[in-house]
Design a protein around this nucleic acid. Sequence first.
DNA 1: GGATTGCGGATGTTGGATATCCGGATATAG
DNA 2: CTATATCCGGATATCCAACATCCGCAATCC
Lengths: 164, 164
Amino acid sequence: MRMSDGVEWALHVASLLAVVPPEKGMTAAKLAEFHGVPGAYLAKHLQALTRAGVFEAVPGRGGGYRLARPAADVTVLEVVEAVEGRTRAFECSEIRQRGPAGGGPKSDYRGVCGIARVMYDAEAAYREELRKVTIADLLGSFLRSASPGAQVRAATWMQKEMSS
Amino acid sequence: MRMSDGVEWALHVASLLAVVPPEKGMTAAKLAEFHGVPGAYLAKHLQALTRAGVFEAVPGRGGGYRLARPAADVTVLEVVEAVEGRTRAFECSEIRQRGPAGGGPKSDYRGVCGIARVMYDAEAAYREELRKVTIADLLGSFLRSASPGAQVRAATWMQKEMSS
DNA sequence: GGATTGCGGATGTTGGATATCCGGATATAG
DNA sequence: CTATATCCGGATATCCAACATCCGCAATCC
């Protein structure tokens, strides 16, 4: 069970956009360059995040991407679901209806299978954890824990690349 | 992010083994037939569960699989991890060290990335939920919620197939 | 010794994730 | 109005892990 790399990219991008002046935004190419990831593929995820209402895209010259809402109002869960989709990791295939002991009338299997119930509950707990954290929290964590050197390098790059 | 079907199979198998007399066990072929799943592939998962100490395998004529411990002492988490492995769904690729703002001295990136921290915590919550539930609980859930018809069909099949 | 069963390696198959490209639409600058 | 920069979405190619099967070997019981 492996999560798409796009989730990691998207969370880093969202954290970065939280410190970009909203009226300027940042192009997909710049975002990819800053994080050292393939631009063409990152663009796909950015489009998905835009469709999900997490980012806003500004077309045309001088355009780019920006957060659709204040960073404190965007949860990590939203970003994860926008990239990964909202399908469940565990999918019940109704094994209980198969085999020699299955095959009874449909009414025999009305409620959710007990095994599926447990797995669904665990996934709900997972999502609940991600719902508690916002992009603003991620940014705060970075500002608190990142070394001064790294913060200066990031600020310098943005100064230089976003002057126009 | 999709979980292997083997997890669902394994949980159903474990629940079934919880009601099989331990001194008899059940062969891989019978377990596959009962659940209507491909036998050769189920066998692979059974072997993994045996290596993980969840099941016990009895070779030779009259052999088969049985629970290695009482059903109340086996957690759902153990079964899931035996089949899925213990790798994390989210793997941090240290994006923060890439790109123009990365590349500083290694000491700049000592602690865990804040984004990875959040994802790891969510996975911990997920596993914690699965650790709370035992195979005995799954069996209890089945006995409480399954229709009488389905329970009779299962008992009848086992009576017939395990007479030897 | 023969039959049954689990064990594990080798192998083939398939589906999804990864990655790229290109034509079209849109908005801004001059 | 034209040129440029940018996002959008479909089509495509590639790659890898999950899925699935098979076969020879080892262990056990009758």
